Simulated scan of single mutants.
Amino acid sequence: MNSQKRILVLCGGKFAFKALQLLAAEKFLCGIGIGKGSSIISEVLEGESEKNNLAFKSFPDKKSLSEMKPWIENLNPDFIFSISFPFLISEDILSYGKEKFINFHPGPLPQYRGPMPIFEVLKNQEKNTAISVHFMDSKYDEGPIIFKETLKINEDDTYGKLAVKLSNHTAQVALNMANMAEYAKEIPSSIQESTDAYYYEKPALTDTCIKWKNMTASEIIALVNSCNPWNTGADTSFEGEQIKIITTSLFDQSHENAMPGTILVINENGTINVACSDNKQVSIEILKTDIGIITAKQFNYQGNILGKKFK
């Protein structure tokens, strides 16, 4: 009987932790490579690797990738799993073995290629997302699809909530993939449909900024959720001060076509209602201002804000 397959995991940090733990528990994991991770996370992974007799290497920048191929060749894994690894793997490194590099992309492919699909699916108000497992090639997220696991997006999901959900589910998906690699004579895959493909760059300020004049209430809520917590919240401005809105909800009531962005009501519970372009309102609960993260009630204490506008 052949010995169990040995899997090296290339990762970018905390998102891969559950998968690393499960693969280690099932005796598949032989090494960990981390790319551009924080020093604390790198130290934790290095310590755990040493304790469990696993190979470990840090790749802090693109230049350090020149050390990857000889490290992999020395370790000689059967497969290399990539879970949120931040750098593109070159053709030279991929030449280690055909169909040995497998990526776990936290979004539907080919529709949501790019580094932050969690942000994009939330911003676009998708009902479902996916973990897309695919063979890697020398381009981001373009290799043949092995399989996809669909996950429902809940109405109250923020970037943080959905990331945790996907991280937990990726662990089981990675174990399923390891078992497939262990027992299948060959791993089936299919070429991605180019007609459905779209690549999203990393979000810029223009992507995280609320455009009060033309965004509906549901679009604003979706943007706020998609920015929490990685961007602290969605960007806006008030009286010349840069503000981030962290938590908001729908107040489904007409405002009789007030100017979008106008603060209409200060509620008894301290939240503030703001006019949106679709004649609905959003109720803001938590913000970040120059004085820190505060409630809408505290924001109101800074002065008379009724009738003033976010821009």
Rank of each mutant, 00 (worst) to 15 (best):
W212L: 03
G160Q: 10
D207E: 13
N168K: 13
Y183F: 15
E186D: 09
S90L: 01
C11D: 06
K100G: 13
G13Q: 02
T208N: 01
L22G: 01
Q111V: 02
L22C: 03
I102N: 11
S254G: 12
G35A: 11
P108I: 09
C276N: 07
Y159S: 03
F56A: 06
Q111K: 12
D290R: 08
P203E: 03
G33Q: 04
Q298C: 01
E50L: 14
D207K: 11
N257M: 09
S95L: 02
Y112Q: 04
P260Q: 05
P106C: 03
N124R: 13
D207P: 05
N128T: 03
C276Q: 05
A197M: 01
N76K: 14
I286D: 04
Y112T: 03
P229G: 07
E126M: 09
I263P: 03
F310L: 00
D61E: 11
S277I: 06
E155C: 14
F17T: 08
V164N: 10
S39T: 15
L250W: 07
S190Q: 14
Q298Y: 05
K69Y: 07
N257R: 11
G143L: 02
V282C: 08
S58G: 05
I266E: 08
E241L: 12
F15Y: 14
E73M: 11
V164R: 07
K185Q: 10
P106V: 02
P260G: 09
A25Y: 11
S64T: 13
Q281P: 05
L75Y: 01
E91D: 04
L287Q: 04
M68Q: 01
N154A: 15
F79C: 08
T232A: 02
Y200A: 00
E268G: 12
T262G: 00
S189T: 00
N300Y: 12
E50P: 00
A19V: 10
L205T: 12
L45V: 08
K161S: 15
E155S: 15
S132A: 10
T216Q: 10
E201L: 02
I34F: 11
T129I: 02
F17R: 05
E67Q: 14
E142V: 09
C11T: 15
A296D: 09
L162I: 08
D157H: 12
S84C: 05
L22Q: 11
N128F: 12
I131E: 06
I89V: 07
Y200K: 00
I145D: 13
I266Q: 10
T232R: 04
I32N: 04
M259A: 15
N154R: 14
T236D: 03
N269D: 15
V9K: 15
K185S: 14
F17V: 11
L22I: 03
P203Q: 03
